[in-house]
């Protein structure tokens, strides 16, 4: 069964994600840079900004690819392992969604 995989990750993890793809032999995937906005998640973070004035977007990228279901699950598993190692800072999110029809 073909699945659509969407992965959202901080730019800094680009290299690591690439490594994961290579490890489980995912040979084709696409990438888009994404500017993310988050209105002060904890409510006060930006207020304590001493000097800054401009609000810069959080820079993410989105990778997507089409995989067999078991391969998709394997990828998700690897990302989960990675996130645990990364001490909870900006974890990589990955989504699997079904493909209803394609030609």
């Amino acid at each position: 069964m073909m699945k659509f995989i969407i992965i959202q990750s901080a730019e800094a993890y680009h290299h690591e994600l690439e490594q994961i793809f290579r490890d489980i032999h995912i040979n084709s995937y696409s990438e888009l840079p994404v500017d993310g906005f988050m209105e002060s998640a904890d409510g006060h973070s930006d207020i304590s900004n001493w000097f800054g004035s401009s609000k810069n977007p959080y820079r993410y990228f989105i990778s997507f690819t089409f995989l067999e279901e078991d391969k998709a699950n394997e990828l998700l598993e690897r990302i989960k392992v990675f996130n645990e190692e990364a001490e909870g800072i900006s974890p990589i999110s990955a989504y699997i969604s079904a493909i209803e029809k394609f030609v």
Binding site: Y13, A41, S54, N56, I89, S90
Partner: peptide, 18 residues
């Protein structure tokens, strides 16, 4: 909120102009 390296660069960008 971000990996350290990315947080560092983002923070520098943020105050670079000021």
């Amino acid at each position: 909120k971000l990996p350290f390296i990315q947080a560092a660069l983002r923070s520098i960008d943020e105050v670079g102009n000021p």
